[in-house]
Amino acid sequence: MKYYKAFGVNLNNLLVKHSKDVMTVASVGKIEPKQVYRVLNGEHGASLGTIISLAKGLDIEPAELFSFNFDMEKE
C-alpha cells in the first residue's frame, strides 16, 4: 500500500510540473476522473492500461510515472 501512495504522490507532482489537472488528464487519456483520483490517493495500483492513459494525459513517457524513490527494504 505504501508503494501505491508513493506512486500517487509522484503522479500529483507530475500534474503540478506539467500544469495539468485531473479532468484534463482523464479526458485526454480517455479514462474516468474517478480512476485518476483513486490512483492519486493510493487507493489501488494502476493497471498497465491506466498507466498508459495517465502518460498520454500528461504527455509524458510512461516510465516517468515510475521515476521516484521508494525504499523497498522498509516494505
Results as ranks from 00 to 15, higher is better:
residue 5 K to F: 11
residue 7 F to G: 03
residue 15 L to D: 00
residue 19 S to A: 12
residue 25 V to W: 05
residue 49 G to E: 15
residue 63 A to R: 01
residue 40 L to Y: 03
residue 39 V to D: 00
residue 75 E to L: 06
residue 18 H to I: 02
residue 13 N to C: 06
residue 7 F to C: 09
residue 56 K to F: 07
residue 18 H to C: 00
residue 14 L to D: 06
residue 72 M to K: 10
residue 47 S to D: 13
residue 45 G to E: 14
residue 57 G to Y: 05
residue 63 A to T: 03
residue 52 I to A: 13
residue 70 F to L: 03
residue 22 V to L: 04
residue 6 A to Q: 13
residue 43 E to D: 14
residue 54 L to R: 08
residue 61 E to Q: 12
residue 12 N to D: 06
residue 8 G to Y: 00
residue 28 V to T: 14
residue 51 I to Y: 05
residue 75 E to P: 00
residue 11 L to P: 02
residue 35 Q to H: 02
residue 31 I to K: 07
residue 18 H to W: 11
residue 52 I to P: 09
residue 5 K to T: 07
residue 28 V to P: 01
residue 44 H to T: 11
residue 68 F to M: 10
residue 6 A to K: 15
residue 55 A to G: 09
residue 55 A to Y: 08
residue 29 G to H: 05
residue 37 Y to H: 04
residue 56 K to Y: 08
residue 42 G to L: 05
residue 34 K to H: 09
residue 66 F to H: 06
residue 21 D to Q: 15
residue 25 V to P: 01
residue 48 L to A: 12
residue 68 F to G: 13
residue 69 N to W: 04
residue 24 T to N: 07
residue 26 A to P: 02
residue 66 F to V: 08
residue 72 M to Q: 12
residue 38 R to Y: 07
residue 46 A to D: 12
residue 47 S to M: 14
residue 25 V to Q: 05
residue 2 K to M: 03
residue 67 S to F: 01
residue 41 N to M: 12
residue 53 S to G: 02
residue 13 N to E: 08
residue 32 E to Y: 12
residue 57 G to H: 11
residue 48 L to M: 09
residue 62 P to I: 02
residue 14 L to F: 13
residue 34 K to I: 02
residue 11 L to G: 02
residue 75 E to G: 04
residue 46 A to C: 12
residue 39 V to P: 01
residue 26 A to S: 03
residue 38 R to L: 14
residue 20 K to L: 00
residue 26 A to M: 01
residue 13 N to I: 07
residue 72 M to Y: 15
residue 38 R to C: 06
residue 57 G to P: 05
residue 28 V to I: 15
residue 64 E to M: 08
residue 17 K to Q: 14
residue 14 L to Q: 11
residue 50 T to F: 13
residue 15 L to P: 01
residue 69 N to Y: 07
residue 2 K to S: 05
residue 70 F to E: 01
residue 18 H to Q: 04
residue 39 V to W: 02
residue 44 H to P: 03
residue 37 Y to V: 08
residue 41 N to Y: 13
residue 18 H to K: 15
residue 21 D to H: 15
residue 15 L to T: 00
residue 61 E to V: 13
residue 49 G to R: 11
residue 28 V to A: 05
